[in-house]
């Protein structure tokens, strides 16, 4: 009897052992090391010298400003697109439309591809040739006179291209999130509001939105986390250096600095800045949306 009591007391710690290991080796140690290296001149020979804030001061370059701007624009546009289209699709496909299930599946299919494959397709569709789809459509509509090289045209078009790739692949997931949340909205509440004379917009604003708030907060948090640390979309569209840093994002710059220029000190400084941005944006967002206010 005594022996069994003992094993039940120790067991949870044994079960948690993998987490303790991962916490220290895979997260805490690298995290501290990143902070340390951001204040160091990390030399390939192994001798590291503390240089104070010089890495951070050296970050004030055009490259870094471009990476910062691109990452911000990408995150804002992508989040906005996800929310607007994900919500519109979810609201429509939550009605009893004919062919509803087929339509849901179709919007979801791109989720099954990978970002790199999306990149391969969109590189060709948005190629610089006169006969590539984007140029054909844009010229057909009279938006442009000459075929343009979408991928190397300008910073803004580059950012939009990344949003296009990301949205194509993940609007389906966002839609499913919103759909499952919408199905949890109590029908009686909406009915009651309608009887009291509320129109559709008012029902959406005052019944639906508050009911699905946890999902909205979750999707927003994840999209901020994923948006600011975007790397794959950029790599899928431009796997080599681009003219004028088109499509350069924070993580991409970190990767370049760390593995192409082998400057781990500077790369760590980029990582620290990135982490501070993500954490503060998410904290502000969670605070404003009142996650800490209520029961959860």
């Amino acid at each position: 009897m005594k022996h069994k009591m003992k094993s039940k007391d120790i067991a949870p710690y044994l079960f948690c052992l993998p987490f303790v290991f991962a916490f220290f080796v895979i997260y805490l140690y690298p995290f501290c090391k990143t902070i340390m290296m951001s204040f160091q001149d990390v030399r390939p020979t192994g001798e590291n010298v503390f240089i104070g804030l010089r890495n951070f001061r050296n970050l004030f370059t055009d490259h870094f400003a471009t990476a910062l701007r691109n990452t911000f624009i990408y995150t804002v546009l992508n989040t906005a697109f996800q929310f607007v289209f994900g919500m519109v699709f979810a609201l429509i496909l939550n009605r009893r439309l004919p062919m509803r299930n087929i339509l849901r599946c179709t919007i979801f299919v791109p989720v099954l591809t990978s970002t790199i494959i999306a990149g391969i397709i969109f590189r060709l569709l948005f190629g610089s040739l006169e006969t590539s789809l984007a140029n054909q459509i844009a010229m057909g509509l009279g938006v442009i006179e000459e075929p343009i090289a979408w991928l190397t045209q300008s910073q803004m078009i580059g950012n939009i291209m990344m949003v296009v790739v990301a949205s194509w692949r993940s609007t389906g997931v966002t839609m499913i999130y919103f759909l499952s949340a919408l199905q949890g909205v109590p029908e009686e509440l909406k009915e009651a509001a309608r009887i009291d004379g509320a129109n559709n917009v008012q029902v959406f604003r005052h019944i639906t939105i508050p009911s699905i708030r946890p999902t909205l907060i979750y999707v927003l948090t994840m999209s901020i986390l994923g948006g600011f640390s975007v790397f794959t979309e950029s790599y899928a569209l431009w796997n080599t250096a681009t003219p004028g840093d088109i499509g350069l994002t924070m993580t991409r710059y970190l990767y370049q600095m760390g593995f192409n220029k082998v400057n781990f000190g500077m790369a760590s400084a980029i990582g620290i800045v990135l982490m501070i941005i993500i954490c503060s944006v998410n904290l502000v967002q969670l605070k404003c949306l009142g996650l800490f206010r209520e029961e959860d």
Binding site: I26, Y27, M37, F228, S229, F231, L254, L274, M275, I278
Partner: peptide, 8 residues
């Protein structure tokens, strides 16, 4: 973000 841990 896992990305900031990749160097160490």
């Amino acid at each position: 973000p896992f990305e900031i841990l990749i160097l160490p």
